[in-house]
Nucleic acid binder design. Structure first.
Length: 105
DNA sequence: CTTTTGACTGAGT
DNA sequence: AACTCAGCCAAAA
């Protein structure tokens, strides 16, 4: 399968997110030099041809929300996985970005 | 080539 | 905290 350059960049960045940390779509968009393409970033991750390799479940919305239409199981499954990595969710189903957002360097 | 769509964001109500 | 509206981008139809 052939992947676009854009998607390639998205995956390259997403793959760097360590266990127990999360990143936002806008954050990723900024790192690949297209600060305004966060929307497309979401699409690229949606396709996610590198499922196990790219930790797309560690990518959340700017407000700490999880993707409602996540692959297998929806946000419930995603939240479950993140919980396994030590991430605690608030009652509203959001993650504490201040504490878990990964700072790329 | 034009239009629609979507795992988004930010500001305003 | 929940909803709406408008703006931006890449991929698919």
């Amino acid at each position: 399968m052939k992947i676009s350059l854009f998607a390639e960049q998205v995956y390259r960045v997403t793959r760097q997110i360590p266990r127990g940390k999360v990143a936002t779509y806008s954050q990723i968009a900024r790192l690949i030099d297209n600060p305004k393409s966060y929307r497309a970033v979401g699409n690229a991750l949606h396709k996610n041809p590198f499922a196990p390799q790219v930790p797309c479940h560690r990518v959340v919305s700017a407000k700490g929300d999880l993707a409602i239409k996540f692959g297998a199981g929806g946000k419930i499954e995603q939240q479950k996985r993140l919980g396994k990595e030590g991430i605690i969710f608030k009652k509203e189903g959001k993650v504490n970005l201040t504490k878990y957002q990964f700072e790329f360097k």
